[in-house]
Amino acid sequence: MATPVLDKADAAGQPEPGFADSPYITVTFRIRRFNPEVSAEAVWEDFQLEIDPKERVLDGLHKIKWDIDGTLTFRRSCAHGICGSDAMRINGKNRLACKTLIKDINPEKPITVEPIKGLTVLKDLVVDMEPFFQAYRDVMPFLIAKDTNEPTRERLQSAEDRARFDDTTKCILCAACTSSCPVFWNDGQYFGPAAIVNAHRFIFDSRDDAGEQRLEVLNDRDGVWRCRTTFNCTDACPRGIEVTKAIQEVKRALITRRY
């Protein structure tokens, strides 16, 4: 049997990813600092560090916190884009710090890091997430099935029906979308894209019977009609969810009452 040639990268004379001979570079992190225990004003602070460009922005923040300034404060946990802790504005765009590699954001210039917008900043990159989760809870984000007698086995669902809402099940509640939305910035009452995404996840689930109720919630003046289709949310979503499309589908369902 012919064995596949596996060391392609080596064969081409290219160093493998993450390999140590890739040069460390010096980058500047320009971070928006705020600590009300110290000052009522937020300020920009620059940090210079050596970093492998294949590392994450989160690794850079850790280097600062661990080796330079322990007071730098941010949330993080999983470090690979799955827990939704570390949405922040990096070079003016909402991203997860753990899913953004230094080399992908032009390390020649200072890398700016700010908290996401539209939610109250509590310290450095940490914002108050409560209003965000409140909007989520308001759309009744749980399956409501009116089965008169619960089946003993699983409910059946065809692969097509399952696929209908697959995209919106991926949400990790990171708030990157909601906090990139100009409507949300101007009006904190707007449910915001993430809540609509999570309503969509149930409205289009064939097992759910409360679509009407959820649509009524979203028909509210602070609901889905506020969306101006700017696509910021879709661009921001680190899970690749077509957020704007989901919102459009909810709007259409409101008009046609078919979903």
């Binding site: 086995r153 669902q157 065809s158 399952r162 099940t169």
Partner: peptide, 13 residues
Amino acid sequence: KMGLPFNRTPKGE
């Protein structure tokens, strides 16, 4: 029953 969206077989299980 709580709503978890499992992958399905052709029969829907």
